[in-house]
Structure formats: structure tokens, C-alpha cells
Design a binder for these strands. Structure first.
Lengths: 208, 208
DNA sequence: AGTATAAACGACACGAGTGTCGATTTTCAA
DNA sequence: TTGAAAATCGACACTCGTGTCGTTTATACT
């Protein structure tokens, strides 16, 4: 039963197909994308694509997994920086993501999660990603609190969810309306203001 | 050229079809709904439905218009109440909407706006609704400021967009994850906290 | 080189939904 | 009551995408 091509080859081929799929999903979103689109974009036959993926949903799931690796979820821990500085730099990354929404999977993601909802199967990825982000943030807040960097007024998980909801909403609205209408930078400043009130970071000057 | 049924009859029939459509959209969302579903739900023939609407997109647009009338956009102006009280009562309504997300069009709306985005036609409804809500909120803040009820720290339109993005995000996340995971009440409390910091309402006790 | 194996191909049958259109029924007005 | 207009019906032809499967091609091992 020895395979006729190396595992490495298959791995690469799959990655190649996923790259094509990503382009398609970025361009057409999830709901309007088809297997057809993907196999054309990849320049590959029907049979080839179906040898790797059963259907569009599976392609998307695999793509999610694949992208998850280079994910932006983590607050990069860095003892050189105050908690607040770490947070602002994380938020910067998010801001950039939203600004480049046309070149990202953010819209397709929302579409996917919304339209797949009915499917009783209920992919765990959805809740998992959310939970993971909540947990990362909780850890971040706790670390900050222990360092005396933060004096949060609310439970860390509440603040985390607040943060996520706002970012998701800003993303959604920006996808609908374009950046000119939502003004991402300004909105992120307001978010910073709110989070500052919630987390009460010790000002950098007071710290050293 | 007198029509064979009254205008009133046609109006009612259309409303009836829209009622059926609404049920379908609530149950299946936008992307998974079909004209077929609607005509079955309405108990009407293919030809009848197509006599009133060209296609699914048109049905949805019409439904949006129809629903817009009994819309929740407005802050009910009431001089008996402080601005802050008016705001909390508005937020209560929003909270209820999100909690009843399974019986509302919120999810279908998101789906529609996301999946229709590509269509260069660019329905004005999307931006219009957003702008209208922003304007209503701006008026509310200005009124409050003039009454000495509010002392906002930021431009009213920024705060309005912040508010909308958060609500939209909370809605989206709740649709994805269910209320147990997002805790709508708690999140609304955090929003109240943030808005309080931004708007600096004069406390009720200080006012009379 | 030769050959077994499986990767890649693409024609095909199928299903689901669409929008149309001639036939049929209903309605209103005379 | 009657008949013309139009509302409703539902069969039909069409489109688009799906997933399968027998065939062809490429690979790696001997």
C-alpha cells in the first residue's frame, strides 16, 4: 500500500489548493464561492480537488485550521513593555487587519459562521476560537494585575468579551460600509479610552 | 384599464407574502432561503409570488422597507426622563432584540449585507440605516448637552459609531455562539459603563 | 526499462432552484 | 349574467454547481 507520491508532495499540493481557495474566499466571500471557482483558480481538475476535499465546507474548515497557525490571537508576552503597551500594540494589529479587510478572510469568516449556524453539527472551531481569545486575554490581564500594571474594575473575562464584540462589530460594519464610514482609527481610540477606564493601567511614567 | 382587484387587495397580498418571507428568513437566514421556501410558506403558487417580486433579493429589500416602518431606531423623546434614562431604556430594547435573536431578522440581515456586498449596485439601505441611526443619536446627544444633561467627552458621531459597532458585534457573536457564551446582560452593563464615561451624564439625583 | 499503484483528469448524471409562459380561474363592472 | 382583464396556477426548460467514476497519466520502486 505504499503511496506513489511522497507525503511531502501531498502536503504541498494541499497547501497549494488552500492558497487558491483562500484567494477565492477573499474575492467572493464564503456564500458565493464554489468548488468550481477553486479548481479553476488552482488550475486543477475536478477530480484532483475532490481527492483532497469532500466539499466546500470542508475546504473552509481546513483553511481555518491552516490559517490558525499563523494566528494573531496571542498577545506577545514581553517583559520590556508594560501591559498597556502590549495591549495597544495588539490593538494596532487588529486595526491593521480591519483596514485590510478586503485582503483578508474576515468577511468570509463571518459569512461562514452565520450561514453554517443551522448545521446542527455545530463546528467547535467557532466557540473554540472565541474561548481561546478570551483565555489569552484573561491571562494577559492577570499577569498585568500581578505586576501591578493593571487594576481592573471588572472581571477579566467580561472585559475580554466586550473587547471582542466591539472588534467584531467594527469589522462587520467596516465590511458593510467601508472604512470611510466607520473610521477605524477613531473607533480604536474610543476603544482604548474605554479599556483604559476598565483596566486602569498604571501610567508608563509612574512605573519605572 | 381598471385593475381587476383593488389596490388594497394587492397591498394586503403583498404584506401577506412578506409575512411568509419573514418567517422563512428568520428560520433559514438569508443565504439558505429560496423563493421555493417562501411560496410554500405562503401557500401560494410560483406565478403568484413572481407576480409580486422578481427574485429573492427583491423580496428581502421589500421586507427591509416594510420592517423599517416599525423600526426601533428612534430614541423616544420624553421630557419627563433624563437623557441618560432615555438612553438606558433604548439600550434595554436593543438587549431584548439580541436576546430574541432567534425570532428576529438580525442574523438574516447580517447575512444579506455581507453576501450582497459584491453586487456593485450597492444598496443604499445599508449605509442609510447606519447613517440614520448615527444622526438620531447625534440629535439625542445634542439635546442632552443643551439641557445640561450630558457633558460628552467625544464628538457625538464618534460615540454613536462606537455604540453601533459594539451592538452589532454583540449581536454577531451572540448569533454565532449563543447567549450563554456572550452574556448579553453583562456586556450591556459594560457598554453602559463606557458610555457613561464618554457622555458624563448628570446623575439623576443631582438633577431635579 | 518495466510495472504496479495511485494521482489527476474530465465527462456525466443528478439535484435544486430559477424564471417564464400558456392555461385556468377569479374578480369586477356593465 | 356575462365577459374582459388580470390574478393565480403549475409544468417546463434552463442554469449552475455537485459529486462520482471509468480512464489516462505520472511516479517510484525493483
Amino acid at each position: 500500500m505504499a503511496p506513489k507520491v511522497s507525503e511531502e508532495y501531498k502536503r504541498q499540493k494541499k497547501a497549494e489548493l488552500l492558497r487558491a481557495a483562500k484567494q477565492v474566499f477573499i474575492k467572493k466571500g464564503y456564500t458565493n464561492a464554489t468548488m468550481q471557482d477553486i479548481l479553476e483558480e488552482a488550475g486543477v481538475s475536478r477530480g484532483a480537488l475532490y481527492a483532497y476535499f469532500d466539499n466546500l465546507e470542508h475546504v473552509y474548515i481546513e483553511l481555518l485550521r491552516h490559517e490558525d497557525q499563523q494566528d494573531i490571537l496571542s498577545f506577545t508576552p514581553d517583559d520590556e513593555l508594560t501591559s498597556w503597551q502590549q495591549f495597544t500594540s495588539w490593538l494596532d494589529k487588529q486595526r491593521m487587519q480591519i483596514k485590510q479587510i478586503d485582503q483578508s478572510l474576515l468577511v468570509a469568516n463571518s459569512e461562514f459562521f452565520l450561514s453554517v449556524k443551522e448545521n446542527k453539527s455545530g463546528y467547535p472551531y467557532i466557540t473554540d476560537r472565541y474561548q481561546r481569545l478570551v483565555e489569552v486575554f484573561i491571562a494577559f490581564v492577570q499577569a498585568g494585575a500581578e505586576r501591578g500594571d493593571l487594576a481592573p474594575r471588572f472581571p477579566a473575562d467580561s472585559i475580554a468579551r466586550f473587547l471582542i464584540s466591539f472588534i467584531d462589530g467594527l469589522m462587520l460594519d467596516t465590511a458593510h460600509l467601508g472604512q470611510d464610514n466607520t473610521d477605524v482609527d477613531e473607533q480604536c481610540d474610543l476603544l482604548l479610552f474605554s479599556l483604559k477606564e476598565m483596566l486602569r493601567p498604571v501610567a508608563a511614567e509612574e512605573k519605572p
